[in-house]
Simulated assay, not measured.
Amino acid sequence: MQKEIYENKRRYHEASGGLNYGLEVFGDVIAEREGYRSVKGIDAVHFYLIHKFSWLPRDVIGMSFEHLRFVLSEELEGWTLPPAAR
Rank of each mutant, 00 (worst) to 15 (best):
E32S: 10
G78C: 02
H67D: 13
E74H: 12
S54Q: 01
A84H: 14
R86N: 15
A84N: 09
Y6E: 11
E66K: 13
L72V: 14
H46C: 03
S73Y: 05
G78D: 01
F47V: 01
F47W: 07
F65N: 13
K52W: 05
L76E: 02
F70G: 03
Y6D: 11
I50W: 09
G62T: 12
A85Q: 10
V45K: 00
L81M: 15
P57Q: 10
S64C: 04
L23D: 09
N8T: 08
L19N: 14
V45T: 02
L49E: 08
E77Y: 08
V29W: 15
E66Q: 13
F65Y: 15
M63G: 05
V60F: 01
R11P: 06
V25P: 10
R37G: 04
A31I: 02
A15T: 09
K52L: 05
L72I: 15
F65S: 12
F47L: 00
E32V: 12
E7A: 04
R86M: 09
I50V: 13
L68S: 12
R86F: 08
E34F: 02
L49Q: 06
Y6G: 03
A15E: 12
G18N: 10
L23M: 05
Y36K: 03
L68Q: 04
E34A: 06
L68T: 14
A85N: 05
E34S: 03
R33E: 13
R11W: 11
R11Q: 14
F65T: 11
L68E: 03
K9D: 05
L56C: 00
M1E: 14
Y21V: 09
V29S: 14
W55I: 02
F65E: 06
I61F: 09
L72K: 02
V60E: 05
E74V: 09
G35W: 02
Y12Q: 12
W79A: 04
K3L: 07
G18I: 05
H67N: 12
L23T: 07
T80W: 10
S54R: 05
S38F: 09
S73Q: 15
